[in-house]
Amino acid sequence: MQAVNFFFINALLFASLIAVVGVPYFYMTQSDPSDRRNPEIKKVEIIGGVWFHLVLIEGVIANLI
């Protein structure tokens, strides 16, 4: 069980690193800042969604251990 928890902790840390580096990068490299549905914003939303779900999964697994 600790191996599963270790896997999710590392996945959460990696996703946090991607979010910290990726979100400002995608905002700075927008082709059209006035367009709210451009591909860069969609990438930011996907990164945020993955990070949020990893946090939820980590919380559930931490309660089981």
Results as ranks from 00 to 15, higher is better:
Lys43Arg: 14
Ser16Gln: 08
Val55Lys: 03
Val55Glu: 00
Val23Trp: 00
Ala19Glu: 07
Lys43Tyr: 11
Val44Leu: 09
Ala3Met: 13
Leu12Glu: 10
Val23Glu: 07
Ile46Leu: 09
Glu58Trp: 06
Gly59Gln: 04
Leu54Tyr: 05
Ala15Phe: 00
His53Met: 15
Asn38His: 10
Asp35Asn: 12
Asn5Tyr: 13
Phe14Tyr: 15
Val4Gly: 01
Phe26Ile: 01
Ala11Gly: 01
Phe52Pro: 00
Pro33His: 07
Phe8Asn: 02
Leu56Trp: 06
Glu40Pro: 08
Glu40Met: 12
Glu58Gly: 06
Phe14Ala: 11
Ile47Ala: 07
Ala15Thr: 02
Gln2Asn: 13
Ala11Ile: 03
Ala15Gln: 02
Pro39His: 10
Phe52Leu: 15
Ala11Trp: 04
Ile9Asn: 09
Asn63Leu: 15
Gly59Leu: 10
Val50Asp: 01
Ser34Leu: 15
Glu58Ser: 09
Lys43Ser: 14
Phe52Ser: 07
Gly48Thr: 07
Gly48Tyr: 03
Phe7Gly: 01
Leu56Pro: 03
Ala15Met: 05
Val4Arg: 04
Ile65His: 04
Leu13Ala: 11
Met28Asn: 08
Lys42Arg: 15
Ile18Glu: 08
His53Ile: 14
Met1Ser: 15
Val20Thr: 08
Val4Tyr: 00
Val55His: 03
His53Ser: 10
Ile47Arg: 03
Val20His: 01
Val21Gln: 07
Lys43Met: 12
Glu58Ile: 01
Asn63Glu: 10
Ser16Met: 05
Val4His: 04
Ala19Asn: 13
Ser31Thr: 07
Val55Arg: 00
Gly59Thr: 03
Pro39Cys: 09
Ala11Ser: 05
Ile61Thr: 05
Phe52Gln: 05
Glu40His: 14
Ala11Leu: 14
Tyr27Thr: 06
Ile18Leu: 14
Phe52Tyr: 08
Met28Ser: 07
Asn10Lys: 15
Phe14Leu: 12
Pro39Ile: 11
Ala15Ile: 01
Ile57Cys: 01
Pro33Phe: 11
Val23Ile: 12
Ile61Phe: 04
Arg36Ser: 06
Leu17Gly: 14
Ala62Leu: 11
Lys42Gly: 13
Val60Glu: 03
Gly22Met: 00
Pro24Asn: 01
Gly22Ile: 03
Ile61Lys: 01
Val55Trp: 04
Gly48Pro: 03
Ile57Thr: 07
Ser31Ala: 14
Asn10Met: 12
Ala19Phe: 10
Gly59Trp: 09
Thr29Asp: 04
Val23Pro: 01
Ile47Trp: 04
Leu64Thr: 08
Ile41Thr: 12
Glu58Arg: 12
Ala3Glu: 15
Pro39Ser: 10
Ala62Gln: 11
Leu56Arg: 01
Ile61Cys: 07
Leu13Asp: 13
